[in-house]
Each structure stands twice: as structure tokens, then as C-alpha cells.
């Protein structure tokens, strides 16, 4: 019997279903969510012949293991890692056939943080507001994978000819140093001139306290020029929000849609994929752009 589903054998530290997110509901308090490294998602989907926004699994640090109930085409991308099928080494960053009942093991990242597992047909969990993404801030979408979680797959309509031949390298290289282009504002006037200089000249490091909501940073605190409370206002992806402790937080996919701490600047969206792969301790530099 063909049962188009996979069973989670090993869930890993944090494995969630992600697509390209839930756009258009921020006014209801719904975060965009979606994969933290969207370029990696597009690529693994293309490798298995899926539409680029098909749902994939996003793993964190130590991968996961899956047992498909039917033969499937799989591609593992994002952070490089060893891939095994029933214990035998298999290729990373390209389409791999996994027989029904075999165990696909996505190993721990050798560099970077977040791996992406695409399967032909995509993970067909119930969409919520147009997306299958797990949103850890507001609890929308499926809960994070656990052992024995069964994830349904869609019909595999991918063109077999397209598989394995794509037009982009599978990995742009993990960041040894994160250089984040930041455009100051809208609340840079809430900070002292010295704080603004600090932001773009001093070194920060990726803190281990980060998550899908935000990249937390260790480094010099930013001093406010204005005190008191800012009325809640809308927040965007990449916003560099500064809580009362002065340490900037870069908002990622599951960020709250409104907030009351001032945003000193906004990081270019194109730079956020590398943020998703930056391990704790990675040096971070903000460079101002107009």
C-alpha cells in the first residue's frame, strides 16, 4: 500500500515545517514566519522538482531522521551535513532517492546551523492562513516535529528531468563574520550619536540566546537619547530593535508584528539568510547603507 507520508524517527533539537511564510496578516497580529534561509528552501525544492514555496523541514544544529512510507525523492540543503540512507552515505545538496521504509538520516551540521529537507510533493500538513509554516511566536501551523510524528506528503508531480540540474551552487559558504547592511531608522533619533557610532563601528557576536524570533547579540549596549515609552508600532523583518538593556535584537521570521521598543535600523532582507546560518560566537558587524 502506498501511503504518502514520512514518520519522524529522530526529531533533532528543533525541526519545523516551513515554506515561504504567511504574508498579509500582520494587521491581525500574525507574524510572517516561514523559513529563515529562504534561498536554501527554493534550492532544495527545485532539486526535487517542487514549486519553490513547497513546505520543507527546517532542522536546527543536529538534523533529524525520517522514514518515508513510500519511495521518495529527497534533497538536503542549507547547512552542510552528512546524509545517510539506511546507514549508507548519500549525497548532500542534490536529489537522492529513498526507498519506502528506509531511514533518511540528516546529520549534524558541519558548518552553519539550519538544514532544509525537501521531499518531492512537499510536506502537505494543513495550511493555516495560506501557509504551512510553524510559527513559534504565535503557535500557528503544525507543532515542532517529535518522534513518531507522521507528516503527510503531496503528490509528487515534479518533472524528473529537472532533478539534479539546477542553476545555483547549493551553498554560498557559511559566514565566518556576519556583515549586515543596515539602514538607520525609523527611531535612530531615540539614540545618542555615540550609540549610533557604536552600532556601526564596534564588533558584536551572535549570542546563543537567539531563535526564530530574533538574532540576539552580545556586545556594547546602545545608549538612548530619549527615554519614556514609545507607543506600539508596526515591525518589519530585519528590524534592529533595542530593548531596555541596550543590546540590539535583529527580528527574524517569527517576530512580533508590533512592538514598543525603538528600532534603530533595519537589516537588508538579502542578508538575513546568512543570519540563519550564523552559529553562536560568530562576529557581527553592521555597515550603514542608504
Amino acid at each position: 500500500m502506498t501511503d504518502r507520508a514520512v514518520v519522524v524517527v529522530r526529531a533533532g533539537a528543533l525541526t519545523t515545517v516551513q515554506d515561504l511564510g504567511r504574508v498579509g496578516y500582520a494587521h491581525l497580529g500574525v507574524p510572517r514566519s516561514g523559513a529563515l534561509d529562504p534561498a536554501a528552501v527554493r534550492l532544495v525544492n527545485r532539486l526535487v522538482g517542487n514549486p519553490e514555496n513547497a513546505a520543507v523541514l527546517e532542522t536546527t544544529v543536529d538534523g533529524c531522521a525520517l522514514r518515508p512510507r513510500c519511495a521518495v525523492t529527497v534533497a538536503v540543503g542549507g547547512a552542510p551535513c552528512p546524509v545517510r540512507v539506511d546507514g549508507r552515505p548519500a549525497a548532500w545538496g542534490t536529489a537522492v532517492r529513498v526507498p519506502a521504509g528506509a531511514v533518511l538520516d540528516v546529520g549534524a551540521a558541519t558548518r552553519g546551523l539550519r538544514g532544509y529537507v525537501a521531499i518531492g510533493g512537499g510536506f502537505e500538513v494543513e495550511p493555516v492562513l495560506g501557509s504551512r509554516s510553524t510559527d513559534l511566536l504565535s503557535g500557528l501551523g503544525p507543532p515542532p516535529a517529535a518522534e513518531e510524528t507522521v507528516l503527510p506528503l503531496g503528490p509528487d508531480t515534479g518533472a524528473a528531468a529537472a532533478r539534479g540540474s539546477v542553476d545555483a551552487p547549493p551553498w554560498p559558504g557559511p559566514p565566518g563574520e556576519l556583515v549586515l547592511r543596515v539602514r538607520l531608522g525609523p527611531r535612530d533619533d531615540w539614540f545618542t550619536a555615540a550609540a549610533l557610532r557604536t552600532l556601526v563601528t564596534r564588533a558584536y557576536r551572535v549570542s546563543s540566546a537567539g531563535n526564530r524570533i530574533g538574532l540576539r547579540l552580545d556586545g556594547p549596549a546602545l545608549e538612548r537619547a530619549r527615554h519614556g515609552e514609545l507607543a506600539s508600532e508596526g515591525m518589519v523583518l530585519g528590524a534592529v530593535q533595542v530593548p531596555p538593556d541596550g543590546r540590539p535584537v535583529v527580528f527574524l521570521a517569527d517576530h512580533p508584528t508590533t512592538g514598543g521598543y525603538p528600532v534603530v535600523g533595519v537589516v537588508r532582507e538579502a542578508d538575513l539568510g546568512r543570519v540563519a546560518q550564523a552559529v553562536p560566537g560568530t562576529p557581527v558587524r553592521f555597515t550603514p547603507v542608504r
Binding site: V23, G24, A26, H27, A231, S232, E233, G234, M235, V236, T257, T258
Partner: peptide, 10 residues
Amino acid sequence: EIVPAARTVL
């Protein structure tokens, strides 16, 4: 996205 808030619209 059009996100109203207390004194702003994003």
C-alpha cells in the same frame, strides 16, 4: 502589509 498601531501606520 498595512499595519495600523497607536499613532502610526506601517
